Amino acid sequence: MEAENRTQATEFLLLGLSEKPAMQSTIFGLFLSMYLLTVWGNLLLILAVSSDSHLHTPMYFFLSNLSLVDICFTSTTVPKMLYNICTRNQAITYAGCLTQIYFCVLFAVLDIFLLSVMAYDRYVAICHPLHYTVIMNPRLCGLLVLVSWITSALHSLFESLMALRLSFCTDLAIPHYICELNQLLQLACSDTFLNNIVMYLAALLLCAGPFAGILHSYSKIVSCIRRMSSAQGKSKAFSTCASHLSVVCLFYCTLLGVYLSSAAPHSPHSISTASVLYTVVTPMLNPFIYSLRNKDIKRALRTLFFVNGSTVE
């Protein structure tokens, strides 16, 4: 009898943010605008950093990688959602669902790693300024990014392979606009104990661990700033950390919102609504947060536009 209630899943249904037909055109326009703004803003930031030799420093190297990851993260989720709305087809294949899970986990963990690496970079720049160029040498910077990519790829591959062992019930509707791992586990008819153990252990090691590293770095930074005698030095040190700290708070607060919303009863779409914040809104805001308070990036953008304008003329 139990076997009759199970099925070999060939596709899932993504219910999206709203099942009301009248809302679909509004959601489509909103998400298309946010997606284009995300790609444009982050791509512009990458071009500004790569075109200005003064920005070829560890801080902007990590920032460029963060922008690239944000473009990839958003591109993993939003285009499929827009396609489903256009075609009025909520289906996603089994292979497509697992592929989306793989890349969502990959880029989410990469975001976390890069934010922690950037916090360490700020710690070295403020607390050990005389040894900054020696410690944060190009080899170490490249190694930190490479290790982040490899670790994230292996972890997301392991999570995806763990999901392959699951069998599913006849109800294959996911109350989300993406294939999210936790939602997929809730649809499974087979035992998900091992999957949950792996997922929560990974969350503890790959999310809480880097976050603890960020907190430790900033505790050292605050201690160094307090010992500075110059008010101008304190202001300059704080301004170099303000943008990064804003992005960290935004990313981790939205992640926390997703986990809190998952505990909310009788709200099937609460998780998908909260997920919009860290999958779409945060990648869209990151380049603007770093650009608005950063004179170097503003100068690089002006130079980029001026050179392009002169070339066109």
Rank of each mutant, 00 (worst) to 15 (best):
Leu66Trp: 07
Met136Ile: 07
Asn137Val: 09
Glu313Ser: 15
Phe12His: 11
Leu17Gly: 07
Thr254Glu: 00
Val147Met: 07
Val147Thr: 08
Ile271Lys: 08
Leu114Phe: 11
Pro175Met: 00
Ala9Pro: 00
Leu13His: 13
Val145Thr: 14
Ala202Tyr: 11
Gln90Lys: 14
Tyr120Gln: 03
Tyr94Ser: 13
Met81Glu: 13
Tyr177Lys: 03
Tyr218Thr: 01
Met228Thr: 07
Leu43His: 02
Ser190Lys: 10
Gly29Asn: 04
Ala48His: 05
Asn286Met: 13
Ile101Cys: 11
Pro79Ser: 06
Val69Ala: 10
Val222Pro: 03
Tyr123Lys: 10
Thr133Ser: 14
Val124Ile: 04
Leu206Tyr: 10
Tyr120Leu: 06
Arg227Leu: 13
Asn65Ser: 12
Pro138His: 06
His176Leu: 02
Lys298Asp: 06
Leu32Glu: 05
Ala48Thr: 04
Met81Gly: 10
Phe238Pro: 05
Leu17Gln: 09
Ile92His: 02
Leu304Ser: 01
Ala237Asp: 04
Tyr290Ser: 06
Val39Asn: 01
Cys249Glu: 07
Gly142Trp: 09
Gln186Ala: 14
Glu180Asp: 08
Thr273Glu: 12
Thr273Val: 12
Leu14Lys: 06
Leu15Gln: 11
Leu166Lys: 03
Thr77Tyr: 00
Phe211Gly: 05
Ile214Pro: 05
Phe103Met: 09
Leu140Arg: 04
Tyr94Leu: 09
Thr282Ala: 15
Leu143Met: 11
Ala95Val: 12
Lys298Pro: 01
Met162Ser: 09
Ile197Cys: 14
Asn65Val: 08
Gln186Asn: 15
Tyr123Val: 05
Ala163Asn: 12
Cys141Ile: 08
Met1His: 10
Ala95Gly: 11
Arg88Phe: 13
Ala9Leu: 08
Ser230Lys: 07
Met23Asn: 10
Tyr132Cys: 04
Leu43Asp: 09
Arg226Gln: 14
Met1Leu: 14
Ser51His: 05
Tyr290Ile: 03
Tyr35Asp: 02
Asp52Ser: 06
